[in-house]
Design a protein around this nucleic acid. Structure first.
Lengths: 260, 260
DNA sequence: CAGTTGCGTTGCATGCTCTGCAACACTCAT
DNA sequence: ATGAGTGTTGCAGAGCATGCAACGCAACTG
């Protein structure tokens, strides 16, 4: 819609592949060197690109700062975080929080047993959308037509023999997940890793996020992990209540409606 | 330099503070709504902003993905090299930079000693992992289970009488290194060569590389070499800061912990 | 229910601002 | 020294962004 901005923004993914000099940037953009220079300068002033000592351009620190701020400003994340920590303390395994956005599912928080807090580096990484338990929950809640559109547009990489093979199988799985209100990934992404997940819902009942517990086979079997399901669901429900109620300082004590 | 791009980029920090609707964005930019709309659309096409269900704009997923890629492409060596050179100029000894990768520790950079007697090492060559100071730092930062797995899998060649004899001794040493934040190798690899090392850490605090100063006994005693420790640590910290994204032009902030 | 207010959206004419060119400055290697 | 390869600057022309005003739409409100 805006040519200049369009070109400027196209520089960033280009630099994400690795440092590049002025000529390379100009070539890949299909513009004159001087044009590329102006764009890079503007990006530089805003800290989005950084000029290293050999004069080549790199992505700048501002990007990290922004990504970090953005992640910290997510309401769900803020509300959910203490719950994730508590869940981690109770079961000891890795706990993830993820949201859906524009055909992607992203981890926005993570608690590992050995790294108590902030592993920002991994947060923000797109999830293996066709197999991850959290992805199933988030996609299963999309409107029917959109869900099908997305499912048909996806690639279905064969991570393992248990990976979702195609759109049909995926849609069937999503229907099941939608029905039962929770999801699993049993070795679909990495052979030895299992995962159970539960949805976090907003006031209108729509799934705004999903949380999961992951553990390798060598620690607990899939069956043992499944015994954690009630705990995961209770935690997710607690987050849902707090998120819907908007009562950050007033923990609600009411109903233990663990649902079906 | 480029007005349009300048305005578009100004939107991002603005959205980092929290979601905003079209009117707010236009106001804060000082432009007409329609102008803000075009800019936001362009940002949206590139995935830098996301439109939530209430039509307000948020920072988008692409930012996270970019930040993620940028982190992975950060070239430690490129950033560290000038620091290594300076360190070498100040102390005169051989300076190494090493990273851990797939059960191996590799030298990825080296600045030769100015003294005639040099130790043998080669960039890209695996380090004597059970004794080298840099290896201790890199392994000490691994997750506990992985650390133990690696330690148990290793061979413990007796290079000298002071070489690490077995996995138990190695793990004990790693614990100590992890605790104190630096490491030494006093004649563990070659009888007459000593070595002090300090870690380089990324934004998340994990050790991404380690650097060391090595010198033979005939030039300086082990005790003399140890007096260089503060200098090595300061240098490593400087690299960590720059690697983490702080601009190198930033006015110096006193670490205060400088002995001599 | 009609009127009203507030929002996002669209087409269009104006002219600002971005563009490509060409010449210059600079470093490095021959 | 001379050349090739960079990054940089000034300039004129026009492409493209801009603001305006009108429209569609939803949510309030009397």
């Amino acid at each position: 819609m805006s040519q200049t901005v369009d070109r400027a923004l196209s520089i960033l993914p280009l630099l994400a592949e690795g440092p590049a000099d002025l000529g390379q940037v100009a070539d890949r953009l299909g513009v004159h060197k001087s044009t590329a220079l102006r764009l890079l300068r503007t990006l530089h002033e805003h800290g989005f690109v950084y000029r290293q000592t050999d004069q080549r351009y790199r992505l700048g620190a501002r990007l990290f700062a922004l990504a970090q701020e953005a992640v910290e400003n997510l309401d769900v994340r803020e509300i959910a975080h203490p719950h994730l920590v508590r869940l981690n303390e109770e079961c000891g395994h890795t706990v993830h929080l993820a949201v859906y956005e524009e055909n992607e599912v992203l981890y926005i928080d993570k608690v590992e047993s050995r790294y108590p807090v902030r592993m920002y580096s991994r947060i923000g990484k797109p999830v293996a959308i066709t197999v991850a338990a959290v992805a199933k929950l988030l996609l299963a809640d999309l409107p029917e037509d959109e869900r099908r559109a997305v499912a048909e547009k996806l690639d279905y990489p064969t991570y393992t023999s248990r990976s979702t093979p195609n759109a049909a199988a995926f849609l069937k799985e999503l229907a099941k997940v939608r029905e039962q209100g929770w999801a699993t990934d049993l070795g679909g992404h990495e052979e030895s890793i299992n995962c159970v997940a539960a949805p976090i819902r907003g006031t209108d009942g729509r799934v705004v996020a999903a949380m999961s517990v992951s553990a390798p086979n060598v620690v607990v079997t899939a069956d043992e992990l499944l015994t954690l399901l009630p705990l995961v669901r209770r935690t997710a429900d607690a987050v849902s209540r707090e998120y819907s109620g908007r009562t950050p300082a007033t923990p609600e004590q009411d109903t233990g409606s663990t649902g079906t």
